[in-house]
Amino acid sequence: MDLRLWPELAALYETPPDLSSCPLYYVHVDERDTAVTLGFETPQLPDHPRAEWEEKRYNTLRFFVVFTGVDELRITGIAAEHPDMRDRTVGVIVTGTGRQQVSVTSENRSITFSAAASAVTQSRVYLQGSL
């Protein structure tokens, strides 16, 4: 992942988690604002945690990526929390025109689209299970 794409993650990580290894637990398509929000979580803890996290016990970081100016949206094989979406790849490639080509694909399901911009929002840490 190119840290220049999401400075919010660059502030937390020297080497950010690979999105393909992060559980994707949230997908929201907002047709009014032509936006797609993807929610990820990772057990890869930040190298540079925020000051307000330092006193907390946590083992998971959860964050949302909001893609705006979305077009060419294609969704195939919709299924809520289907096992094959755990074994999937996530790609975000910036084209020569500056648009972001986004793909979340598994053997039988996929979400692909083009976006004008994206930003990481609402990142937070929490304790999942026990330490």
Rank of each mutant, 00 (worst) to 15 (best):
R32V: 06
F40V: 00
D33F: 06
V120I: 02
G69A: 08
Q44V: 09
M1D: 10
A117E: 13
V70I: 06
R62A: 15
A119E: 13
I111N: 05
R62P: 01
Y58Q: 10
A35I: 03
F40K: 00
R32N: 12
G69H: 05
H28Y: 13
A11W: 03
W6P: 03
R86M: 12
K56S: 11
E55Y: 10
Q100W: 08
Y13E: 03
W6L: 13
Q128H: 12
R4D: 12
N59K: 01
P23E: 09
R86Y: 13
V70N: 10
L12E: 01
A115V: 02
D18Y: 00
A119R: 08
G129D: 02
I93H: 11
G96P: 04
C22T: 06
P46Q: 11
V125Q: 07
P46R: 06
V102C: 09
E107A: 14
W6C: 09
T121K: 08
P16A: 13
D18T: 00
F113C: 04
R109G: 08
H28C: 11
N59L: 03
R124H: 15
D71F: 05
T68C: 08
T95N: 09
R124Y: 15
G96M: 06
L24Q: 02
L45M: 05
D33R: 08
R50G: 05
S130H: 04
T34H: 14
D2I: 03
L131V: 07
E55K: 14
L24F: 02
L61C: 12
Y26S: 13
Y25D: 12
L38M: 15
P16G: 11
P46E: 09
F40A: 04
M85V: 03
M85F: 04
W53L: 06
V66L: 13
V125A: 11
E52G: 00
Q101Y: 02
E107S: 10
G39Q: 11
E55R: 14
T76D: 14
Q101T: 02
I78K: 11
V125G: 07
L127V: 00
E107H: 08
T60C: 14
